[in-house]
Design a binder for these strands. Structure first.
Lengths: 240, 240
DNA sequence: TCCGCCAGTCATGTATACATGAAATTTCAG
DNA sequence: CTGAAATTTCATGTATACATGACTGGCGGA
């Protein structure tokens, strides 16, 4: 973290993703600047950045409010991610992996093997898994060598329930299946089989939708803070 | 245009898309604020907004530079747009068109019929066509009722050569073919045939890639200002 | 009682001064 | 003359004061 703007943006992003600021909440510059002990300038810049990421709604002269997401939007996000990351794998396969990338991905797969070797999901491994998973996906996306694709994929990660920090860490066999697909994707990419790589990555990501749905529907959609948006409405300055 | 920030952003966006600021050009706050006769504050906000749109590169403490796009990136953008807008049509078909939307889309199709009725492409019709085309696509996307999808699609429009302002207005039969596909897409959506609607929209957008390629390759990629990025490099403060 | 106008309040928009730190230049040792 | 360290320069980062305009609440008329 270099600039205060970045600090504030990270702090706000955490707050939003953790649900500390509920959907519709009106984020005001002055209170935030006092809480964070900076001036309004970096707060304004951070709010603008988060709005551009899609986490906030913005209306000129009215300010920023926390955006909500419907279950349909979360599902669409996963479907889109599946398409985009699948495409990235296809491009990476067509382009070919350089030796360093190949080695790095193999190491990440070995890391995954190590985590799963216990035969059960240990809570203390969850962060490691998330880290490994993010690096693996990112490695493949980078291997596609297409920044437009990277940008759009990153944007799908910014949607709360589709965030790369969300790991559905409760079913050993689901995680194991994920890892197996990682390996298959890698093999396909390495062997230049773009179409197969694309399909395998799509399958891998689309599985996550079911996990999301399984988790949300029994709980009821209202239980999820990020759902059901209430953008700043006329006639309610501090609505939220 | 309400705020100065928006004015500056629009002005800069035009300049970038028209190639007045070449790829790699370092946009500095003070000179811009003097040119545009505003303070640095709205200029900064506008630069941040354009960077978030993906038109500029940003490095903390170094500033903003015009981003370049490779032909591969432009092609990928169209492929992605084809997927996303196809998906939008599928969702719209599954959801069903309300009467007002249905009527509006039919009017837009009739507008297209009228433009093409001359049997030849008249230069003065180009803006009308672009307007009609944008409204038609936007109408379908809105009908999908999914803002995440809308956001991502809009982002694909912000890439220079994939911008909604680019119309390949030089081949009557290509335009006529476009229009016929519009009509087929609409019919499928209206009739609730989501899969067909998706396929037709994909076909429609993927055709544009060929037109882009046909236009760029004979001219040589270097002829195109937005290609071949030169992001701000270490050792070149005013590198351009 | 209800509607609409008016002024007050306050959040956002903008200008400007100062702080910070990266790049360019100069200086000096070898 | 070469190279590196110190200095200078200046663009960006931040704080703060002021401007603008949207919501609020009260007043008066219907």
């Amino acid at each position: 973290m270099r600039t205060r703007t970045e600090n504030v943006a990270n702090s706000l992003r955490d707050g939003i993703l953790q649900g500390r600021y509920p959907a519709g909440y009106h984020l005001q510059e002055t209170p935030l600047s006092e809480e964070m002990d900076v001036s309004r300038t970096p707060v304004r810049a951070a709010l603008a950045a988060l709005a551009a990421e899609g986490l906030l709604d913005y209306v000129p002269k009215r300010g920023y409010s926390v955006r909500g997401f419907s279950l349909a939007e979360v599902e669409a996000t996963y479907e889109i991610r599946a398409n985009l990351e699948g495409m990235a794998c296809r491009l990476a396969a067509e382009r070919g992996l350089d030796a360093a990338t190949c080695r790095k991905l193999e190491e990440l797969l070995a890391w995954g093997d190590a985590i799963l070797a216990h035969g059960t999901l240990r809570a203390e491994d969850q962060d490691d898994w998330m880290d490994m998973n993010n690096r693996f996906h990112r490695g493949l996306i980078d291997a596609a060598g297409n920044r437009v694709l990277l940008d759009l994929i990153e944007r799908t990660y910014s949607i709360p329930l589709a965030s790369s920090r969300v790991v559905h860490w409760y079913d050993y066999f689901a995680i194991k299946g994920s890892h197996d697909l990682h390996r298959r994707v890698f093999d396909y990419v390495r062997d230049g089989r773009g179409v197969n790589a694309e399909a395998a990555m799509r399958e891998h990501i689309l599985q996550a939708i079911d996990q999301i749905r399984d988790r949300l529907e029994p709980a009821g959609a209202d239980n999820v803070v990020v759902l059901n948006a209430h953008p700043i409405a006329a006639g309610g300055r501090d609505a939220g």
